[in-house]
Amino acid sequence: MRSPAEPGAFVTGSAVVLPPATQSAQEAVRAGRITASESEGLGVTRVHVADEPAPLLAAAAARVAATRAGVAPESVGHLLHAHTYYQGHDFWSPAHFVAHEAGFDSCVPMSVGQMCNGGAAALGIAVERARSAAPGAPALTVVTTADTFGGDGFDRWGSDYDTVYGDGATCAIVSPWADRTNGPALRVLALDSRARPQFEAMYREGDAFGTTPHALRAVVDVKATKRAFFQRSGGTAEFRDAAVKTIGELVAGVIESAGVGIDDVAATMLPRLSPKVLDLMYSEAIDPRLAPTLHCERDRTGHLGAGDFLANLDHLRRTGTVADGQYALVVGGGGGFTWSAALVQKLGPPLPRT
């Protein structure tokens, strides 16, 4: 294991930007978008609702994180932007827009598409860049996510089973060095992903390939494709068994790779999904010894698309959920299917409340 004095991979800056407007579950029930019983199962009080396009939120998150961390634009070598849903233009690179709007015009931008695992996938690339940074090159990688689920093409309350999608953006700044000048850092000891591509059809089953966006349906209907998939496959048992096995192996492998004991994990951050979805995939998969450490911060954000993983890292870095020197596990996943886990160590005390 690397000593803290050696180059590695550290999250030295982070931010979550949520638009000020919100929509409550009670409002969704009154509007007939979900039933009262569906609302009770979501585990969400309200979500944030954006007027501005997602890439503008991402650029704002990058600026906030960079300002907090005291990052000079010329020190950023790469910017990785992940998202789940529409970014505002049909034939365009949102990553380049985010980089320019955030003031990182000398970096190399890249978009990362892996559904709701996109933030974790982008973070994995950033971690590898940090660990292999060439001397003298711009050493920092900025990772952003942003999703907004408004408009006529997506019903944040009803397009998917047991999930409410909230608007927001996240950012993590990854460095080869544990700079704590402007706040605590998270040392990334291990990060890994596992995939089961045979389940990609869950998001397209029964539909032909289209030639233009929304050619098949005016509104995204994940329920229809999932229903068709599970009818063909005979139910959820096969998927659930594969998910539990894969996540269990992933989490055990990450903890072992980090060189810490399972009893050393002080917090386990779960994706911001409903209790039912967490029970389907995560609850049984994760070692029972970690049960007292489980955290899910979904109540006032809902599911942030590609952003849950980075939002949870920001929560660990900026709050007192874990103390200086303690270890935390972050777990997430996305359609396709891919799951990711990271084992991090907090270096420094929590930031004061603002």
Rank of each mutant, 00 (worst) to 15 (best):
V47D: 06
V47L: 12
H48K: 09
V49Y: 01
V49Q: 04
V49L: 03
A50R: 10
A50W: 05
A50E: 00
D51W: 11
D51L: 10
E52C: 07
E52N: 08
E52Y: 04
E52I: 09
P53W: 11
P53T: 09
P53G: 08
P53S: 09
P53I: 00
P53D: 06
P55Y: 07
P55A: 10
L56K: 02
L56Q: 09
L56M: 14
L57G: 11
L57H: 01
A58G: 13
A58Y: 03
A59G: 00
A61S: 13
A61L: 11
A62D: 06
A62F: 03
R63I: 06
V64L: 13
V64T: 11
A65T: 04
A65P: 04
A65K: 05
A66V: 06
T67P: 03
T67Q: 15
R68N: 04
R68T: 05
R68I: 10
R68C: 10
A69Q: 08
A69T: 12
A69K: 07
V71G: 01
V71D: 11
A72P: 13
A72L: 13
A72H: 14
A72I: 08
P73F: 00
P73D: 08
E74V: 07
E74A: 15
S75T: 14
V76P: 03
V76G: 04
G77M: 15
G77F: 11
G77N: 12
G77C: 12
H78T: 04
H78F: 11
H78W: 15
L79V: 11
L79F: 00
L79Q: 03
L79S: 00
L80E: 00
L80A: 05
H81D: 02
H81R: 05
A82H: 11
A82L: 01
A82N: 02
H83M: 08
H83I: 01
T84G: 01
